[in-house]
Design a protein around this nucleic acid. Structure first.
Lengths: 187, 187
DNA sequence: GAAAACTTTTTACAAATGTTAAAATCCTAC
DNA sequence: GTAGGATTTTAACATTTGTAAAAAGTTTTC
C-alpha cells in the first residue's frame, strides 16, 4: 500500500472517517527518468508524494537551469505558486530517476480541510514544514559563499550525492558547473 | 481598536465565538527605535502583528549583519524556528522606528486552532502566506546578481526606501554597503 | 567494443563583489 | 549654528565567480 497515508498520519494523526475518504481520492502514477511531472507556466494544484525515486524542481533564467530542491522517497512536494495562489507554476518538476508518485487533487484537499478538522490540522502542519524549510534555505543563501553552500549541500543531501549530477548540484547551489568543479577539486 | 483582528479576519473569516476568545488573548506593546522585540538564541513562540512602525529580522554571521525581512504596518511576523519547531530563534527582531506591536502567545494560538475550526483555517492560510513569501524570495536569490536584487528590492519595498538605511538594505540584499553604494551611483 | 553522446575537469581571461581605509555628506544634540 | 557622531560615497586592490572553449573521462547505444 501507499506510504502516503502513513507519512501524512505521522505529521498529524487523522480521524478514521477522514482516512477513508482520503483513500478514495489519491492516485498513483509512474514516471520515467526525465519525464515531467508538472510544467512551469501551467497551473497545477496537486499535492504530490514521492513513493519511490527522485525528482527536482527546476526553472530557467537567462538560459541557465536552476534547481529549487530535490525530493526523495517519502517527501511531499507541490507547485507552490499554483497550490497557494492559483498561479501558473514558477518551476517544473521532473523525475531524475524512474519514480512512483502519488497525488491528491487540490479540490479534494480543500474539501477534506473543510470537512475534517483533523485534516485541516495536517494541512497546517504540512504548510508549516514547507515554510520552515524554505526559510532555512533562504538563510544560507544570503551569507554563504559557494564553497560553504556546497559543504551545506553535502551535509544535507550527502546521501543523494551519487544520484544527483554535477550540473544539477551546481543548479541547486546557483553557481556554474565550472565553479563547482573547482570547489570539488580544491580539497 | 487593534487592526489585528481585522487583518486576521481578512485572511480568513473567523466565527464570532473565536473572535471573542481571541480578543481576550492579545496584548499590545510599544517599542522604541532600536529596541529588541525578540532575541536570537531564545525561544519565542508569539505571533506578532505590526500596528504601526517598522521592524527588521536580522542576525550576524562572521561579524556582518544580515537582514531577513522588513515588516511594516499591518504585517504579521514570527520567530520561525521557535514558532514552528520550538527552537531558539535564528534571528532577532528590532524596531527601526517607534513601533506598536500586538502579540498572541503560542499556547493561545494552538488552543484556538484546536477549539475553532475557523481559527485553524486562518492558521493554515497564514502559514501558507509565510511559505509562499519565503519561496518567492528564495527564487530571486539564486540567479539575480546584486544589481538585479536591488532593483527587485526597490520594486517591492520602494515605498519604504526612505525609512530603511543603506546598511540595512545591503544586509537585506546580502552584499556589502560599498557594493550597494556602487550600484546606486551607477545609474 | 567502438562510436556517439553526455558529463566533468581544466585553462585562460573577464566581470562582479569583498575588504580596508579615507573622504564626503548628513543628522542630532546641545 | 556648531561639534561630534553616524551614514554614505569613493578609491585601490584582492578574491571569487562567470564565460567560453577545449580536453579528459563516463555512459549509452547499436
Amino acid at each position: 500500500m501507499s506510504e502516503f497515508i502513513n507519512k501524512l498520519n505521522l505529521i498529524s494523526p487523522l480521524a478514521d472517517d477522514a482516512i477513508v475518504e482520503l483513500l478514495q481520492c489519491i492516485q498513483t502514477t509512474t514516471y520515467e527518468k526525465g519525464e515531467l511531472i508538472h510544467t512551469e507556466g501551467k497551473v497545477n494544484k496537486n499535492l504530490f508524494f514521492v513513493e519511490s525515486g527522485l525528482v527536482k524542481h527546476f526553472y530557467y533564467h537567462d538560459g541557465n537551469q536552476y534547481v529549487f530542491r530535490f525530493f526523495e522517497e517519502n517527501d511531499f512536494f507541490i507547485a507552490t505558486d499554483s497550490f497557494f495562489n492559483d498561479l501558473p507554476a514558477g518551476y517544473s518538476t521532473t523525475a531524475l530517476e524512474k519514480s512512483v508518485i502519488t497525488h491528491l487533487e487540490y479540490d479534494d484537499f480543500e474539501r477534506l480541510c473543510q470537512k475534517y478538522h483533523s485534516f485541516e490540522s495536517f494541512a497546517r502542519k504540512f504548510v508549516s514544514i514547507v515554510a520552515y524549510t524554505a526559510i532555512s534555505n533562504l538563510k544560507g543563501l544570503l551569507y554563504l559563499d559557494a564553497t560553504a553552500r556546497y559543504a551545506k549541500f553535502i551535509k544535507e543531501y550527502g546521501h543523494l550525492q551519487q544520484r544527483i549530477s554535477l550540473g544539477d548540484t551546481a543548479g541547486f547551489l546557483g553557481i556554474s558547473q565550472v565553479q563547482l568543479s573547482r570547489i570539488r577539486s580544491k580539497k
